[in-house]
Design a protein around this nucleic acid. Structure first.
Length: 274
DNA sequence: CGGGCGGCCTGGAGGC
DNA sequence: TGCCTCCAGGCCGCCC
C-alpha cells in the first residue's frame, strides 16, 4: 500500500540508477491497468529517450527525459517496480517492461491493476488531466499550516475526509491520515471548522513528522529500497493506531477503536483524540 | 456543485 | 480441503 513516503523512497532509489539510461525497448504485456495503457503513446514519447531525472508529484512518479517528455507511473495499491540486471521469467502480473541500454530492465508489476503507466508530451505537465486538481504537497517547503487553516476554517467536513481528499492535500492515504490525527490528538470526525489555527499547526506538523519518519525508515529498512531481487518495495512502519483495534494505546493505555468512515477503516484512541 | 460513496481488481484471510 | 464471502486500498465518476 504505497503512500507518499513509499513513492518518495522509490523515487530516490530510481534517481540513483536511471539517469543517463536510454529506453531501448518497451513491451506492454497487459494494458489493462487503472486506465488502459496507451502503448502507441508510450512508444512515441518514451522509446529511445534518455532519462534525465525522476520526480514525484503526489503519489505519481515522473521520469523525465532529455526531450522533456515524461513517463508517469502510479503504483495504485499493489504496484511494484523491479530493477532487474537479469531477465527472469515473467510473472503473471508483469504488465509493462522498459528495457534499458545497459542490459537492465524496469518492470512494472501490479497484481490488482490499480496502478497506471502513461506518457506526457513535452510541455504537457501543467495540463495533464490527473494533475490539474491535485492539492498541496504536505512536504513542500512552501506549504503553510496557516494557509490550510484559512482554506477550510468554515468547512464542516470531517477532518479525516479532508486529509484524504487529494484536491485538498496529496499523499495522505488512509493509514497516515489515522496516524497523523492520533499524534495531533484530533478525532477523525471532528469538523474542519472546529480546528483552530493552533490545531492546524499541530496537525500539519504531525503529518510532516509521520511522513518524514516513514521516508527515513524507507531509506534504512531496505538497502536503497531495492532488495536483492531488484524489487523496489514497501516497508513496515511502527503504527500507533492503524490496524491496532482492541490493543492498548501506547500513550494512555485506552483501547484503540475502529469504525468505518467514508468507506474506510478508521482507527483512533478515545483517550487521546477529541 | 460539493462531497459521499460505489466500483474497479486480485489475493489472502476467515468461516463453514 | 475447498468454496464462498469479505476486506484492503487510491482514485475516478456517478449521483444525491
Amino acid at each position: 500500500m504505497p503512500e507518499l513516503p513509499e513513492v518518495e523512497t522509490i523515487c530516490r532509489a530510481l534517481r540513483k540508477t536511471l539517469p543517463g539510461r536510454k529506453i531501448d525497448r518497451i513491451r506492454v504485456r497487459d494494458p489493462r491497468l487503472r486506465w488502459p495503457v496507451d502503448e502507441t503513446r508510450l512508444q512515441q514519447l518514451v522509446l529511445g529517450q534518455k532519462v534525465i531525472d525522476i520526480d514525484r508529484r503526489a503519489k505519481y512518479l515522473l521520469i523525465r527525459f532529455e526531450q522533456e517528455s515524461r513517463l508517469v507511473i502510479h503504483l495504485g495499491m499493489s504496484g511494484r517496480l523491479l530493477l532487474l540486471t537479469e531477465s527472469p521469467p515473467f510473472e503473471k502480473h508483469d504488465h509493462v517492461i522498459f528495457y534499458l541500454d545497459n542490459n537492465t530492465e524496469l518492470r512494472f508489476r501490479d497484481p490488482r491493476r490499480f496502478g497506471m503507466v502513461d506518457a506526457i508530451p513535452p510541455g504537457g505537465l501543467e495540463t495533464y488531466p490527473r494533475f490539474i486538481n491535485l492539492g498541496v504537497e504536505p512536504l513542500a517547503p512552501e506549504t503553510r499550516s496557516e494557509a490550510l487553516f484559512e482554506k477550510c476554517h468554515n468547512w464542516k467536513r470531517p477532518i479525516k475526509n479532508l486529509l484524504m481528499d487529494g484536491s485538498f492535500m496529496v499523499g495522505v492515504g488512509n493509514i497516515y491520515a489515522s496516524e497523523s490525527l492520533f499524534y495531533a490528538g484530533i478525532h477523525p470526525k471532528k469538523a474542519s471548522n472546529m480546528l483552530s489555527k493552533k490545531d492546524w499547526a499541530n496537525l500539519f506538523l504531525s503529518i510532516q513528522n509521520v511522513l518524514n519518519q516513514a521516508i527515513e525508515k524507507g531509506g534504512t529498512t531496505l538497502n536503497d529500497f531495492v532488495d536483492s531481487n531488484g524489487e523496489v518495495g514497501y516497508f513496515q512502519l511502527s503504527l500507533a493506531v492503524y490496524g491496532r483495534e482492541g490493543q492498548k494505546c501506547r500513550r494512555c493505555q485506552s483501547l484503540i477503536e475502529r469504525y468505518v468512515q467514508v468507506g474506510r477503516s478508521t482507527y483512533f484512541c478515545p483517550g487521546c483524540q477529541d
